[in-house]
């Protein structure tokens, strides 16, 4: 019963996978097979992440089986079970949520298939359930934002910072806030005077910033947990008759294309990169695992800081 259900599932998943990537199902020689269960396509960032993984797999000659879970954990679990049934060499996925993975990860372990997490972590007591995690360090991104501000804000006097937080309770929101606060604590001039969530969206970022601007005439700096909220807030600042980038310093995180356009127009000061292009790093790790080489458990993606002076030069290279 269970077996037939599984094989049915795997057939469905295989069908999905075949549709998702145009790649011959039967490779000639013994290629490495990687099963990747993506979260979905919820943002520009995620779309770039998907493209990076697909391209890197192709370049590395790895047979990629890809599935899109449409932001649902049960879909991801189904996809992972499908990969186990297909006996792929390595399974990788970006967990939608942090909990509830133990059962399926134990099944993978029992089938002796190593698991690599990307982008987000899982909450589990058993550390042996996955071999490595490749992800951004959100706290470090917050620290970089804080460092940039301390180094570049020269006007004397108190600095009033307003903060647009990400979705309440999400890891990037919590950690970007923590990292930023950690750094600005060093200089008592810098204070966060207002902080509210903008749900990571342009519309909410704009709406909240409008209210901030009316309630408070002394805003020197805006720190937004992602670029989209910063872009919305920039519109609100302009509507208030102030110059974003000059009257109010604007700091964003992610370094998406829209942020570069704003920086080129002089409306945004800096964007801290949160790199979705972890495909190449993932493929390297997969090869090392299959070759039996030891891999580090926590691999941080390579990320930069882009102040507005570098925007025009960097813009043509941006893929997301």
């Amino acid at each position: 019963m269970l077996k037939s259900r599984r094989s049915l599932l795997s057939a469905i998943v295989m069908g999905l996978v075949a549709g998702a990537v145009a790649m011959p199902a039967f490779a000639a020689d013994k290629k490495i097979t990687l099963g990747f269960a993506q979260v979905g396509a919820e943002s520009e960032w995620r779309a770039a992440n998907t493209v990076s993984i697909k391209e890197a797999a192709k370049a590395a000659g790895i047979d990629l089986k890809f599935s899109d879970a449409q932001q649902k954990q049960e879909n991801q679990i189904k996809a992972i079970r499908g990969y186990i049934a297909q006996k792929v060499d390595v399974i990788s996925f970006a967990p939608v949520v942090t909990t509830g993975w133990d059962t399926v990860l134990k099944e993978a372990k029992a089938a002796k298939i190593p698991v690599v997490l990307t982008d987000r972590s899982v909450d589990t007591k058993d550390e042996s359930l996955y071999v490595a995690m490749i992800a951004s360090d959100f706290t470090e991104e917050g620290r970089k934002a804080g460092k940039w501000l301390l180094e570049n804000y020269k006007t004397p006097g108190d600095v009033n910072i307003v903060e647009l937080q990400g979705t309440v309770g999400s890891a990037p929101a919590i950690e970007r806030k923590k990292g930023f606060e950690e750094v600005i604590k060093a200089d008592p001039r810098f204070k966060i005077t207002r902080s509210q969530t903008g749900d990571f969206t342009r519309a909410k970022g704009k709406e909240v910033m409008e209210a901030f601007l009316k309630a408070d005439a002394n805003i020197n700096v805006l720190y937004a947990h992602n670029d989209d909220m910063a872009i919305g807030a920039i519109q609100a600042i302009e509507a208030a008759g102030k110059k974003p980038g000059k009257d109010i310093i604007v700091i964003g995180v992610d370094a998406v294309k829209g942020a570069f356009e704003a920086m080129m127009a002089g409306k945004m000061n800096v964007s801290i990169e949160c790199n979705p292009q972890l495909g190449p790093q993932l493929m390297e790790v997969v090869k090392d695992i299959v070759a039996g080489k030891p891999v580090p458990r926590r691999i941080i993606t390579k990320e930069g800081v882009f102040p507005m002076e570098t925007a025009a030069k960097e813009f043509p290279n941006r893929k997301y």
Partner: peptide
């Protein structure tokens, strides 16, 4: 809620 400084949580 936005202008009174209610904690987002």
């Amino acid at each position: 809620i936005y202008s009174l400084g209610v904690p987002p949580e």
